[in-house]
Protein backbone atom coordinates (compact mmCIF):
# COMPACT_ATOMS: atom_id res chain seq x y z
CA UNK A 1 0.00 0.00 0.00
CA UNK A 2 1.01 3.55 -0.31
CA UNK A 3 -0.20 7.06 -0.81
CA UNK A 4 -3.82 8.03 -1.00
CA UNK A 5 -4.55 9.08 -4.58
CA UNK A 6 -8.33 9.42 -4.36
CA UNK A 7 -10.93 10.05 -1.68
CA UNK A 8 -14.57 9.47 -2.59
CA UNK A 9 -17.75 9.74 -0.53
CA UNK A 10 -20.49 7.37 0.65
CA UNK A 11 -22.64 5.22 -1.63
CA UNK A 12 -20.29 5.32 -4.63
CA UNK A 13 -22.18 3.06 -7.01
CA UNK A 14 -20.95 0.83 -9.80
CA UNK A 15 -22.71 3.24 -12.18
CA UNK A 16 -20.23 5.88 -11.00
CA UNK A 17 -17.20 3.55 -10.99
CA UNK A 18 -17.96 2.06 -14.41
CA UNK A 19 -20.78 3.79 -16.34
CA UNK A 20 -23.23 1.48 -18.13
CA UNK A 21 -22.42 2.81 -21.58
CA UNK A 22 -19.03 1.05 -21.50
CA UNK A 23 -20.45 -2.34 -20.59
CA UNK A 24 -20.03 -3.63 -24.15
CA UNK A 25 -16.49 -4.62 -23.20
CA UNK A 26 -15.51 -6.96 -20.39
CA UNK A 27 -11.83 -7.18 -21.27
CA UNK A 28 -9.57 -6.32 -18.32
CA UNK A 29 -7.22 -4.73 -20.86
CA UNK A 30 -9.96 -2.31 -21.96
CA UNK A 31 -12.01 -1.54 -18.86
CA UNK A 32 -9.41 0.49 -16.88
CA UNK A 33 -9.53 3.46 -19.26
CA UNK A 34 -13.24 3.95 -18.39
CA UNK A 35 -12.84 3.89 -14.60
CA UNK A 36 -14.86 6.79 -13.12
CA UNK A 37 -15.53 7.99 -16.69
CA UNK A 38 -18.24 10.40 -15.52
CA UNK A 39 -15.72 12.14 -13.25
CA UNK A 40 -13.40 13.71 -15.83
CA UNK A 41 -10.75 14.84 -13.33
CA UNK A 42 -10.47 11.46 -11.64
CA UNK A 43 -10.52 9.58 -14.94
CA UNK A 44 -7.89 11.86 -16.49
CA UNK A 45 -5.58 11.42 -13.50
CA UNK A 46 -5.70 7.65 -13.97
CA UNK A 47 -5.24 7.75 -17.72
CA UNK A 48 -2.31 10.18 -17.40
CA UNK A 49 -0.63 7.31 -15.55
CA UNK A 50 0.24 9.65 -12.69
CA UNK A 51 -0.98 7.18 -10.11
CA UNK A 52 1.54 4.46 -9.26
CA UNK A 53 0.36 0.88 -8.65
CA UNK A 54 -0.51 0.29 -5.00
CA UNK A 55 -1.96 3.78 -4.58
CA UNK A 56 -4.98 3.94 -2.34
CA UNK A 57 -8.55 4.94 -3.07
CA UNK A 58 -10.40 5.70 0.16
CA UNK A 59 -14.14 5.16 0.04
CA UNK A 60 -16.94 5.81 2.54
CA UNK A 61 -19.94 3.69 3.39
CA UNK A 62 -21.48 1.22 0.95
CA UNK A 63 -18.66 1.44 -1.60
CA UNK A 64 -19.50 -0.32 -4.87
CA UNK A 65 -23.24 -0.51 -4.28
CA UNK A 66 -25.54 -1.40 -7.15
CA UNK A 67 -24.96 -3.51 -10.21
CA UNK A 68 -23.09 -6.84 -10.30
CA UNK A 69 -21.05 -5.65 -13.31
CA UNK A 70 -17.57 -7.03 -12.85
CA UNK A 71 -16.04 -4.25 -14.96
CA UNK A 72 -16.39 -1.98 -11.92
CA UNK A 73 -13.78 -4.17 -10.24
CA UNK A 74 -11.59 -5.03 -13.22
CA UNK A 75 -11.22 -1.34 -14.14
CA UNK A 76 -9.72 -0.61 -10.70
CA UNK A 77 -7.69 -3.80 -10.67
CA UNK A 78 -6.17 -2.71 -13.98
CA UNK A 79 -4.63 0.32 -12.29
CA UNK A 80 -3.57 -1.84 -9.31
CA UNK A 81 -5.35 0.44 -6.87
CA UNK A 82 -5.93 -0.60 -3.27
CA UNK A 83 -9.41 0.18 -1.97
CA UNK A 84 -9.94 1.02 1.68
CA UNK A 85 -13.56 1.75 2.61
CA UNK A 86 -15.82 2.02 5.65
CA UNK A 87 -17.93 -0.75 4.24
CA UNK A 88 -18.30 -2.42 0.90
CA UNK A 89 -21.44 -3.65 -0.88
CA UNK A 90 -21.67 -7.44 -0.99
CA UNK A 91 -21.39 -8.18 -4.70
CA UNK A 92 -18.57 -5.67 -5.16
CA UNK A 93 -16.63 -7.28 -2.32
CA UNK A 94 -17.17 -10.74 -3.80
CA UNK A 95 -16.07 -9.58 -7.24
CA UNK A 96 -12.98 -7.92 -5.74
CA UNK A 97 -11.97 -11.13 -4.02
CA UNK A 98 -12.62 -13.12 -7.17
CA UNK A 99 -10.52 -10.85 -9.39
CA UNK A 100 -7.79 -10.15 -6.84
CA UNK A 101 -8.49 -6.45 -6.31
CA UNK A 102 -6.88 -5.48 -3.01
CA UNK A 103 -9.81 -4.27 -0.88
CA UNK A 104 -9.93 -3.58 2.83
CA UNK A 105 -12.98 -2.84 4.96
CA UNK A 106 -12.17 -0.54 7.89
CA UNK A 107 -15.23 1.17 9.39
CA UNK A 108 -14.76 4.89 9.95
CA UNK A 109 -11.54 5.17 7.92
CA UNK A 110 -10.63 8.72 6.89
CA UNK A 111 -7.76 10.12 4.86
CA UNK A 112 -6.80 12.99 2.61
CA UNK A 113 -5.07 12.85 -0.74
CA UNK A 114 -1.34 12.35 -0.21
CA UNK A 115 -1.68 10.62 3.18
CA UNK A 116 0.26 7.40 3.61
CA UNK A 117 -2.04 4.52 4.53
CA UNK A 118 -0.80 1.05 5.46
CA UNK A 119 -2.09 -2.15 7.00
CA UNK A 120 -0.34 -3.14 10.22
CA UNK A 121 -1.61 -6.41 11.66
CA UNK A 122 -5.39 -6.12 12.03
CA UNK A 123 -5.43 -2.35 11.64
CA UNK A 124 -5.41 0.22 8.89
CA UNK A 125 -3.04 3.01 9.91
CA UNK A 126 -2.96 6.49 8.45
CA UNK A 127 0.70 7.30 9.06
CA UNK A 128 0.19 10.94 8.15
CA UNK A 129 -2.50 11.60 10.76
CA UNK A 130 -1.52 8.81 13.15
CA UNK A 131 -5.08 7.48 13.31
CA UNK A 132 -5.93 3.80 12.96
CA UNK A 133 -9.02 1.65 12.39
CA UNK A 134 -9.82 -2.04 12.84
CA UNK A 135 -9.93 -4.13 9.68
CA UNK A 136 -13.01 -6.33 9.27
CA UNK A 137 -11.52 -9.78 8.57
CA UNK A 138 -12.80 -11.86 5.66
CA UNK A 139 -14.52 -15.19 6.35
CA UNK A 140 -12.17 -18.18 5.85
CA UNK A 141 -13.89 -19.30 2.62
CA UNK A 142 -13.03 -15.98 1.00
CA UNK A 143 -9.51 -15.85 2.34
CA UNK A 144 -8.93 -19.21 0.65
CA UNK A 145 -9.84 -17.67 -2.71
CA UNK A 146 -7.41 -14.79 -2.15
CA UNK A 147 -4.70 -17.22 -1.05
CA UNK A 148 -5.19 -19.23 -4.25
CA UNK A 149 -4.66 -16.10 -6.35
CA UNK A 150 -8.28 -15.37 -7.26
CA UNK A 151 -11.36 -17.35 -8.12
CA UNK A 152 -10.20 -18.68 -11.50
CA UNK A 153 -7.09 -20.22 -9.92
CA UNK A 154 -9.14 -21.48 -6.97
CA UNK A 155 -11.79 -23.05 -9.20
CA UNK A 156 -9.15 -24.68 -11.40
CA UNK A 157 -7.56 -26.20 -8.32
CA UNK A 158 -10.93 -27.52 -7.07
CA UNK A 159 -11.76 -28.89 -10.51
CA UNK A 160 -8.43 -30.74 -10.77
CA UNK A 161 -8.87 -32.12 -7.24
CA UNK A 162 -12.32 -33.44 -8.19
CA UNK A 163 -10.96 -35.00 -11.39
CA UNK A 164 -8.08 -36.64 -9.50
CA UNK A 165 -10.60 -38.26 -7.16
CA UNK A 166 -12.40 -39.57 -10.25
Amino acid sequence: MGKVAFVVGDDVSTDVIYPGRYMATVLPTETPQYAFANDPALNAKLNAKEVPPGSVLVGGKNFGCGSSREQAVSCLKGWELTIVASDVARIFLQNSINLGLNIITAPGVTASIGDEVVVEGAKVVNRTTGKSWDVVPLPPARQAIIDAGGLIAYTRKKMLEAQAKG
Partner: peptide, 21 residues
Amino acid sequence: FGIGATEMASVWTLGVALNVE
Protein backbone atom coordinates in the same frame (compact mmCIF):
# COMPACT_ATOMS: atom_id res chain seq x y z
CA PHE B 1 -28.77 -13.55 -5.43
CA GLY B 2 -26.57 -11.74 -7.89
CA ILE B 3 -22.95 -12.67 -8.59
CA GLY B 4 -20.22 -11.48 -10.93
CA ALA B 5 -19.30 -13.05 -14.26
CA THR B 6 -16.19 -14.84 -13.00
CA GLU B 7 -18.13 -16.36 -10.15
CA MET B 8 -20.73 -17.60 -12.64
CA ALA B 9 -17.99 -19.32 -14.62
CA SER B 10 -16.97 -21.00 -11.37
CA VAL B 11 -20.57 -22.04 -10.66
CA TRP B 12 -20.79 -23.54 -14.16
CA THR B 13 -17.55 -25.42 -13.59
CA LEU B 14 -18.15 -26.71 -10.08
CA GLY B 15 -21.94 -26.53 -9.75
CA VAL B 16 -21.77 -24.74 -6.42
CA ALA B 17 -21.81 -21.09 -5.32
CA LEU B 18 -18.45 -20.78 -3.58
CA ASN B 19 -18.33 -17.32 -2.26
CA VAL B 20 -21.32 -16.94 0.05
CA GLU B 21 -21.91 -17.60 3.72
